[in-house]
Design a protein around this nucleic acid. Structure first.
Lengths: 255, 255
DNA sequence: CATTGTGAATACGTTCACAGCG
DNA sequence: CGCTGTGAACGTATTCACAATG
């Protein structure tokens, strides 16, 4: 669920497994909440419950970072907040650009979760001259002609793509050429990037489709309709006779 | 990366592995694009490239669905579109509600990817009386007092939460009590749900944090700073002497 | 004979269960 | 004594490589 292409060997990043990295922000959020309530220490059991994982997993995860706990006591909240922040690289400031200021881009610009964790929206960029000059979330929208300049002037290495799918690859290429090496892609497109560039994607319709799959399964459970469970070891039929309703082919994601 | 809590045994869903389910929408999208270009058949190699995975994985994935290919030829595009759609439950209509019509909720309401794949936005719901009566994406916003009625009148089983984190759990409970059994959560909160309810979450700031982690690693690569690579088999140090800058503790995600 | 479908091999991730330790 | 830290066991996912086959 990470790099769109050009996989690096995945778990090579100084030993910390990808799965663990993906959970660190979760722990960090739970710890930050505890920190605000001035809770001094927390056990793996409590923290795991707050983060929605099990405690063995949490302890294993922390063991990759080092031995930051105290046996018989638990973890020092403040210390752990710092260690995880540092591990994630959040003790430094990350300027990001958001390209494509439609509904979603505007939502992201307004999203408080960015600013509060080391991320600073350096610029909003859009191709529409109508948008240029307007402000979104107090940040002026700049024209995409200036993309390269904005990237280099601000030392931006992380870009967020919220454009329509048709232009996402092209925007991606310009970002990369200008020096961006990490991309968060919201457009429903597979991006091709050179080696050394990381892409993560967030795909709203995919998430819903996964839910639909499980939902369907639940529904079929009590009723166990017609073609419910296929006999496991039998050869599955491949006849095209039960094609159902019709061959309707909806339009491609319109953005 | 799926259910917030109350994990069902994960891969128990009639043999199809979770990892495969998560990729089916990707294949479906690639196939739909081919279908629109009237491409009749496609090889695992070509389709894999279009979906951004490798061909062995794709073939393995398809093998869980059945033997839908033809050796020496490839896969029939239309047929495969239908089979995957059916497997994902997209041949039926899924009414969904979106609760919390802020920037993000509005963005989702406008998102074309929903309507085009079996999902129908049955209602937009917000707690703010100011919003009620207004229209977003041509759909009237209704007040959250009517939540239960809306759910049951429309037979909604999938809910999308785009509220501020403070009310997400409470909204979740009302949705579940009213009959919703699948939830897509955009609020940065761990939701507790009873058994039988699926939760998937999309967390924007987590994705950025994961990118920052890798970005940081890249930066440290050429310079190989002070505590670069820890000697693998050696005991990792746990001394608190290298705490760095200071113990700054940033604020919690403000929404 | 190009391409699928799949066992076998490998890599990765999670959970168990308990020794080690403050 | 309670809780961490971690080897060992287990389960899941990916990749390899090739026999089966339209």
């Amino acid at each position: 669920m990470a790099t769109g292409r050009t996989h690096r060997p995945a778990t090579r990043s100084r030993g910390i497994p990808e799965a663990t990295v993906a959970r660190l922000p979760l722990y960090l959020r739970a710890l930050t909440a505890l920190s605000e309530r001035s809770v001094p220490t927390v056990s793996s059991e409590e923290l795991a419950a707050a983060a929605g994982v099990n405690s063995a997993k949490l302890r294993k995860d922390f063991s990759y970072l080092g031995s930051y706990g105290t046996r018989g006591v638990g973890y020092d909240v403040e210390y752990l907040v710092y260690q995880i922040s540092r591990e994630l690289g959040l003790t430094q400031d990350w300027p990001v650009v958001i390209v494509g200021i439609g509904n979603l881009g505007a939502a992201l610009a307004n999203y408080g979760g960015f600013a509060s964790r080391g991320f600073r929206v350096a610029a909003l960029i859009d191709a529409d001259p109508e948008m240029t000059g307007r402000q979104v979330a107090g940040i002026p929208v700049r024209h995409s002609d200036d993309l390269e300049r904005i990237i280099s002037d601000n030392g931006v290495s992380i870009g967020v793509i919220t454009t329509p799918p048709g232009v996402a690859q092209q925007v991606c290429e310009r970002l990369v050429a200008a020096g961006v090496t990490s991309i968060l892609n919201f457009a429903p497109t597979v991006l091709s990037v050179p080696d050394g560039v990381d892409v993560r994607k967030v795909d709203l319709s995919i998430e819903l489709q996964i839910l639909a799959f499980h939902e369907q399964r639940k529904a079929g459970e009590e009723a166990a309709a017609h073609d419910g469970a296929v006999p496991a070891p039998a050869v599955r039929r491949a006849d095209a006779t039960d094609q159902g309703p019709d061959g309707d082919v909806p339009a491609v994601m319109p953005a």
